[in-house]
Simulated assay, not measured.
Amino acid sequence: MNYFKPIKQVKASEEVSQQLKRAIFEGKYVAGDKLPSERELIENFEVSRTVVREAIKGLEARGLVEIKQGATGGAFVKELTFERLSNDCKDLFLLGQMSFTEICQARLAIEPVVAGLAAKHCTDEQAKILIEANNNESKTLEYPEIVLLRSRVHYLLADMCNNRFLTAIDKSLIQLVANITHKFQPDTDKIHPAGLHQSIIDAVIARDEVGAEKAMRAHLTEFISLLQGIEEEYREWLNASHTLS
């Protein structure tokens, strides 16, 4: 009886890609970090430029890195999210096949747990960063910066929960709402007034897991009601535009 499978020769670019991917997943390169330059990778792996470029393109296709051009460009590690799913859901929303309520119901199921875990693991340094993010929510009212500022507390809590799967799901849902609202840019003070995160932050900083979960649930329930009104206005505007055209 044959217990073995034939050996398949692995392409050099796939091996390079696998090693780079492993380095990213092991945290040697985190979101925002720039991977070694093309020249450095060629020297380190002792392969051709073509092999390195093919490997990097593979990472880009998987959504692990973003290629930036210019003198300071290169391959930069992206946030770990379910980006393709998020993009598909955005298209479904714009086509009227998905609602803000459905998206935020998913957040309502996940983010209270994330907030509780963030409270459990909160450090003094993280507490300072949360407070700073909350204080800067109105630093600008311009799109898309305002959306990032009003979402930053949620992103920070996702990072603090110490569960990479929940982090990826949560960030994808947050990004999805941001991408959709950026499409038609509603009044941010109407859709998400500043200061809504205060009770969540207070509970997280106090390491109150139950309180953090409760505060997040209350916040998202209020947020959903605000989003429903915004979505109704958007759908009415969209229908009117189609009628005129």
Rank of each mutant, 00 (worst) to 15 (best):
81 T>H: 00
194 A>I: 14
204 V>H: 00
193 P>E: 04
26 E>N: 14
95 L>Q: 15
210 V>P: 00
88 D>G: 03
227 L>E: 05
161 C>Q: 00
109 A>V: 04
217 R>C: 07
24 I>Q: 02
190 K>A: 06
188 T>R: 05
165 F>A: 03
95 L>C: 12
75 A>V: 10
83 E>A: 11
39 R>G: 11
233 E>C: 01
62 R>T: 08
58 G>R: 09
176 L>F: 08
138 S>I: 14
209 E>N: 00
234 Y>A: 07
106 A>H: 06
59 L>F: 04
159 D>F: 06
188 T>D: 10
74 G>T: 03
124 D>S: 10
54 E>G: 05
6 P>M: 09
142 E>W: 07
237 W>Q: 14
111 E>Q: 07
66 E>Q: 13
38 E>A: 08
222 E>K: 15
92 L>T: 05
89 C>Y: 11
118 A>K: 00
242 H>G: 05
130 L>M: 06
77 V>M: 04
166 L>S: 04
194 A>R: 12
39 R>L: 08
168 A>Q: 01
213 E>Q: 13
54 E>W: 12
74 G>I: 08
93 F>A: 02
41 L>W: 04
122 C>W: 03
19 Q>A: 12
107 R>V: 05
93 F>I: 07
218 A>K: 11
162 N>G: 03
30 V>D: 03
241 S>P: 01
187 D>H: 07
17 S>C: 11
25 F>P: 03
110 I>D: 02
69 Q>H: 14
66 E>R: 09
88 D>P: 03
100 F>T: 04
216 M>R: 02
169 I>V: 11
240 A>C: 03
17 S>V: 03
10 V>Q: 12
243 T>C: 08
61 A>M: 14
17 S>I: 13
175 Q>S: 14
60 E>I: 13
171 K>P: 06
209 E>Y: 00
175 Q>Y: 11
78 K>P: 01
87 N>E: 12
95 L>E: 15
214 K>E: 04
